[in-house]
Design a protein around this nucleic acid. Structure first.
Lengths: 245, 245
DNA sequence: GTAATAGTGTCTATAAGACACTATTGA
DNA sequence: TCAATAGTGTCTTATAGACACTATTAC
């Protein structure tokens, strides 16, 4: 007779292992711009399943270390890249009976953007190798483990989509940057040219950047350096960048 | 010595229950427009934890019944509303040690849009009661169980956001509708007036609707009835609906 | 000076807002 | 006829694209 339990009694008797439950992992698409290309971090799996295959970095939620899902994401990112203040955004969760041969599993996919300046790649016990792959090579040349091709596609899609109406690419640059560098970053992600005057007007009118007061020399005419204003991160434009007509 | 296993051997020895794993559920914000208001479906919890509190409909992934996460969402939606062809979109996953008193848990939140015409509400064993609540009453009057206030806020935010640059609200109407009905639905979600001419031009120019050939009478001047074109569902506008200047 | 890159002036094009206007029905 | 709702004409406004122009540096 287990009727009319109080909530306290109910919880004392509750054991998650009475039920068969899916595995839960976090996987990440960590993007940076290096050598003029949008690149994504992949790790070679050192353990079964899919041992030896490339995969997106990620792993199981650690119920002791992690208080929330994003803790898992931050922890994994730090392990692989040494970066601990990325732009981080949850993209989509993928769950199903067949996506992992161990059984029913769910992965929560995150997108991270980091400046290539800040990175120190590091091996760890579960991955033999960690490397950047240009996204353009990814699409054809490298087949990822599990359903990570789909996960990456979702993250890449989110990135390309949001670049149309936000200033997300500032997160791929160091703290101080010139407008030309920012424009180049937009162009790399969109994979098409952006008109200079429109671009500068749009960014400057949005009032999301401030001048550092410094100039970047080394090219010909020096360029003003900007940084993102404290509250400038979350600007949404009412019109999309439309590209050449 | 468990070294150098093949993947097959590894999988034979693998038991999810060797690890402590989070619970995983799907929760849904099911929206409809009824009586001129945007309303969301809530169920009264018949079981611990949070027995007697209102909550978003949802429940555990059933590893036997569900092949993917969206299967769980469709199953729950059908159970509560009888509807099996809603607009369904995954919004965000919430996971953490504290959000459910039973322990570390993850919920994948889905947004569903249905026409109030199609609904047959039904009780089931795990919920004493099922009801629609206007979203405007929700914000203040009803406190949901677990972190469902945050889950609902995320889903409502997604809905309001996407209405700015898509034609999502067509999914809240029956198959055939007039432009005035569609405009009214936009206005209810945005909670502000939309200019008639701009609205009609925008929708018609987007070429996402087709005339049914029928008229809706009963008001004064009859209005043309439209339906969504087969491929018209996924249109994105390059500019946001901006509202009065 | 020239080459190279930073940065501007200004015209056009597109799609939204404003708002007055006409059209078609029921009673 | 009038009230009510459907639907249009057309002017203004905001912001993106095009592209030629000027500015400032290294050499």
């Amino acid at each position: 007779m287990a009727k009319q339990l109080t909530e306290k009694q109910f919880l004392q008797n509750y054991n998650i292992h009475d039920f068969d439950v899916p595995m839960i992992t976090v996987d990440m698409a960590i993007f940076t711009v290096k050598e003029g290309k949008l690149q994504v971090l992949v790790v070679k799996r050192a353990q079964h399943p899919a041992k030896g295959k490339w995969a997106l970095p990620g792993g199981f939620v650690d119920m002791k270390l992690d208080k929330t899902l994003s803790d898992t994401a931050y922890r994994k990112l730090k392990e692989k890249t040494g970066v601990d203040t990325p732009y981080l955004e949850q993209v989509e969760s993928f769950g199903g009976a067949k996506r992992d041969p161990r059984g029913w599993s769910v992965t929560v996919a995150y997108l991270a953007l980091i400046s290539s300046d800040d990175i120190v790649l590091s091996k760890d016990e579960s991955s033999e190798d960690v490397t950047w792959v240009p996204i353009e090579d990814m699409e054809k040349k490298v087949a990822l483990a599990f359903d990570h091709d789909a996960v990456l596609k979702a993250c890449h899609g989110r990135l390309k989509g949001k670049v149309q109406y936000t200033s997300l690419p500032v997160n791929l640059l160091p703290a101080d940057f010139t407008l030309t560098e920012l424009q180049k970053t937009f162009e790399i992600i969109l994979d098409k040219a952006v008109e200079k005057k429109s671009f500068r007007r749009r960014i400057l009118d949005a009032d999301i950047l401030e001048e550092t007061g410094e100039m970047k020399t080394g090219s010909n005419r020096p360029a003003k350096l900007y940084r993102v204003k404290p509250e400038g991160e979350s600007h949404f434009f009412a019109r999309s960048l439309e590209g050449p007509r």
